[in-house]
Design a binder for these strands. Structure first.
Length: 850
RNA sequence: GCCGGAGUGGCGGAACGGCAUACGCGGCAGUCUCAAACACUGCUGAGGGCAACCUCUUGUGGGUUCGAAUCCCACCUCCGGCACCA
């Protein structure tokens, strides 16, 4: 070819222009109903769930990072004949809407609905195949009424109850969320007032009932870290509950029981003091008159601290003696009682026996207060050694010492026997404790689901009858410049006739934790408008547990655990028949701003996707987000590299539409690689295509999108090398291009649809969409390599590589390795002492001593 | 502090007991162009050497192994969660 004809070839085809093709195909997919799922057909049901977004108004590239690979999974599964259901909705209740309302005097509903409208538009611009017919918006009464309905069912079943519980309280702004308490001095973020604790009557769900069941992960496939974190969060501990009694003193007759939980009943003889949590009810009663001032001051101070501070193993232990003693049930010893903040009221019994010799926290406390440390577990021969730290290690030959008749027994056996002994006369029993607490669902806020109960002067707490649901949130809301829940001032909302006696009553003003909303929304997607029940039981039976759930790792313990608890509650009131909500969960990483912080409008580090869409098109962004790293990793956002992915799509465009053109710049353009025949090149291209198909298929299945894209780029680069040669006219070329487009289709749906339509228009074949094609099958015979390269090491160092036929045996491989020139040089006449042929001949290591 | 995760070229990352740095970005050189842009081709971890080639390198320090980025122990740094942000 002459240079002039080259130039003509180059300019002949039009350029890839995403903006002109993407909206057209999105409209076409809507017409085709690509995204709509026939839920009545459950034969090949594949329920793909992505965590629904909070409509914060901070719409940023992070949403694309979460959603577009999920869409690729949906399209990939559809190409495998699965009936995929990919719904979307909005987690629309919550604190940010109220903050915006207080600050800018906008109505939370209006603020939320505006954000939702904008997010809908943006989510559509991704080209994602969400089934919008199934959309759920949690602040819609059509949704939250069922939170209320479910609450009533739980109340009836004894799964909901009311108890006192402390909140962080600001005198001006009411209850504060953790993020609204600022600084070491714990002041209110809005008014700066000192935050205090206040005890309120609040609603709980009895989820600890499921603690043991939640530790069983056999029906749910979590990433290992999530399973481990949930296991630790539930925190099952086995041990004993031991009854200590108080000793008589000047101010107290004694004989009062103090129950403690311990995981180490074997160390009971080493208990030299006792500690009550500041919240423990006995503190008030047992404190000696001359200790009262100091104890009360300490208790008040502890109330201002966070649990994280109190549990810190690093800081110095604090506490005060209350001026009373307890009696150790195993030896009748009087031991002093302290109150200290490192013991929590909400864990175990809120009281501990302190064994400084065998517990690190007790040891540092005892050291600080000069309390006796008595060793009761030791490896024989070491029992009299001085202790510089608590001995907590477990060793097979350690035994109990200084423990009366139990001395000499192993710790396990001794502990068991001590509990058995105490149990005989009711002074102890084997016991299990969990770190998991019941779920506090009350929120003193407006923007949430009203808890459907009424407080009647005569009848007490009365559930709202089912027929009266929903209890609607009033639309007009006046915050009056304060964070205090406006429902508490809304007389029209508050005043109601008691459903039981008809007398005057007040509505409950607390609303529900928004984690309630997110604990069952995937069931509602299946029947979002069902008017008589929250969940369509038949539909749930056919479509759930959800096949695959994707979402952020930041939800590992809270949302992902609450939802499991809730599912078990739904099961126990007869609404679903399954134990777990989802079969498999994948946690993708989080996209941070360039500054490494979470993206938010207030930080000014958000990347607006609209701008990128108009510059590169949705396909480039989708592909770049998948390519930038492993999906479970996330990381700081940087658009550097977007151009590389865009160039790749340009090459795909060129390959598909202009196979015979050549570019200037390559001196060998239009010629096959030196020494490669046309037949050999055709086989090589076919091999590359099918090897790519094999690896790309498994990468889609395991969500390894970054290497999936890398492999597609490699195949495109291979095709580019053959462009303009005789290969480009052969069926192997057409097959490779066809496979490339099919493999790329789930990730870059618009450009592949465009190229597919153009290629098929030329052939006259009947088609509707590349996204309705079947995923191609690997031709394994085409994917086989004829030769392979074997690296050769001498003493673990790479010295040479030999190319050998694929089917060679080890003896022949060794012969060739030892004949390789660089190997001969490296051996320098020495004989290898050992020849290691690794992993079926993948590598050879020659070991030479001396 | 506790629980979980991650540290690899100038940058994003690949390899996860067997060739460290695939793929991409950036950089350098070139083809095309009057020129630029686009596109395309080649080179590109560090140090040494004219070269063939040699030495070093996966947060730090130890260990296991014929062989370690990968497994084990200790430490450092960063990220997520810690129950009222979602």
């Amino acid at each position: 070819m002459t240079q002039t004809s080259d130039r003509r070839e180059r300019t002949r085809i039009e350029r890839y222009d995403a903006a002109s093709i993407e909206p057209r195909w999105q409209a076409r997919w809507d017409e085709l109903g690509l995204h709509r799922t026939d839920l009545s057909d459950t034969r090949n049901a594949y329920y793909l769930l992505t965590m629904y977004p909070y409509p914060s108004g901070d719409i940023h590239i992070g949403h694309w990072y979460i959603k577009t690979p999920t869409d690729a999974i949906a399209r990939f599964q559809r190409m495998h004949g699965r009936n995929v259901f990919l719904p979307i909705g909005f987690d629309a209740f919550g604190l940010p809407a109220e903050n915006a309302a207080i600050k800018n005097r906008v109505n939370p509903r209006e603020w939320t609905m505006q954000n939702i409208a904008n997010m809908r538009r943006q989510l559509r611009s991704m080209g994602a195949t969400f089934d919008w017919d199934a959309e759920v918006v949690t602040c819609d009464p059509e949704y939250y009424r069922w939170n209320q309905w479910l609450f009533l069912k739980f109340l009836e079943a004894g799964l909901a109850y009311r108890a006192k519980s402390p909140v962080d309280w600001c005198p001006n702004d009411g209850t504060l969320a953790r993020e609204q308490v600022e600084g070491a001095d714990r002041h209110c973020w809005r008014c700066g007032a000192q935050v205090e604790k206040r005890e309120l009557d609040q609603w709980y769900l009895r989820v600890t009932k499921y603690a043991d069941e939640l530790l069983d992960f056999s029906e749910i496939e979590f990433p290992d870290p999530v399973r481990i974190m949930q296991t630790n969060w539930i925190g099952r501990s086995e041990g004993g509950e031991i009854v200590f009694t108080t000793a008589a003193s000047d101010h107290h007759p004694g004989g009062e029981e103090i129950r403690v939980f311990t995981t180490r009943p074997d160390t009971l003889f080493g208990a030299t003091f006792m500690v009550l949590a500041p919240e423990h009810p006995l503190v008030e009663r047992l404190t000696a008159p001359d200790r009262r001032t100091e104890v009360e001051a300490y208790v008040a101070k502890a109330a201002t601290e966070t649990e994280i501070e109190r549990l810190s193993a690093e800081r110095d232990k604090t506490g005060v003696p209350i001026g009373a003693d307890a009696i150790n049930p195993v030896n009748g010893e009087r031991i002093p009682i302290f109150v200290a903040d490192y013991v929590l009221g909400g864990y175990g019994t809120g009281a501990i026996m302190a064994v400084p010799a065998h517990d690190e926290r007790d040891f540092s406390f005892a050291t600080r207060f000069g309390l006796p440390i008595r060793r009761v577990v030791a490896v024989p021969g070491t029992e009299d050694e001085p202790m510089a730290a608590a001995y907590v290690a477990h060793s097979a030959d350690e035994v109990l010492v200084n423990s009366g008749e139990y001395s000499g027994l192993s710790a396990d056996e001794g502990g068991r026997r001590i509990v058995e002994w105490l149990a005989r006369d009711g002074r102890g029993r084997p016991a299990v404790t969990y770190r998991l607490r019941d779920w506090l669902i009350s929120r003193q806020r407006y923007w949430g689901t009203p808890i459907p109960v009424v407080h009647c002067e005569r009848c007490g707490i009365v559930p709202v009858p089912e027929a009266d649901l929903p209890v609607l949130l009033p639309d007009t809301v006046d915050y009056a410049g304060s964070g205090v829940n406006p429902l508490t001032r809304d007389e029209a909302f508050l005043n109601v006739a008691c459903p039981s006696c008809g007398g005057p009553a007040r509505r409950e003003t607390d609303t529900m934790d928004t984690f309630i909303d997110s604990s069952w929304y995937w069931y509602r997607y299946l029947s979002p408008h069902k008017a008589d029940e929250p969940i369509d039981t038949d539909m749930a039976e056919g479509w759930t547990p959800v096949e695959q759930y994707t979402g952020g790792a930041e939800h590992a313990v809270m949302h992902l655990l609450y939802a499991r608890e809730f599912t078990k509650m739904l099961r126990d009131v007869g609404l679903v028949q399954q134990n777990e909500p989802w079969r498999r969960v994948f946690n993708q990483g989080q996209i941070l701003g360039l500054d490494g912080e979470r993206m938010s409008k207030s930080r000014g580090n958000v990347q607006d996707p609209d701008e990128l869409v108009s510059r590169y098109g949705a396909d480039t962004i989708r592909l770049f987000l998948m390519f930038m790293g492993p999906w479970d990793q996330g990381g700081p956002w940087s658009p550097t590299g977007m151009g590389g992915v865009h160039r790749f799509l340009n090459r795909v465009w060129t390959i598909a539409l202009d196979p015979h053109g050549v570019e200037p710049g390559d001196p060998d353009a239009g010629r096959l690689p030196a020494g490669e025949s046309e037949a050999a090149a055709a086989i090589a291209l076919r091999r590359a295509a099918h090897k790519t198909l094999r690896v790309v298929t498994s990468e889609y299945e395991s969500f390894k999108f970054n290497t999936m894209v890398a492999h597609l780029i490699e195949l495109a680069n291979t095709l580019m090398r053959y462009r303009g040669t005789a290969i480009a006219g052969r069926p192997e070329w057409d097959e490779a291009v066809r496979l490339l487009l099919l493999m790329l289709a789930p990730a870059a749906p618009h450009i592949t649809e465009e190229l597919w339509s153009r290629r098929l228009a030329a052939t006259g074949r009947d088609w509707s969409s590349i996204h309705r094609e079947r995923w191609p099958a690997v031709d394994e015979t085409a994917a086989v390599d004829e030769t392979r390269e074997v690296p050769v090491q001498v003493n673990g160092k790479l010295r040479d590589k030999v190319v050998v036929p694929a089917g060679i045996d080890d003896a022949e491989l060794q012969r060739r390795v030892l004949a390789a020139p660089k190997v001969v040089a490296a051996l320098a006449g020495r004989q290898p002492d050992r020849v290691v042929v690794a992993g079926g001949g993948r590598l050879v290591n020659l070991v030479v001593r001396s």
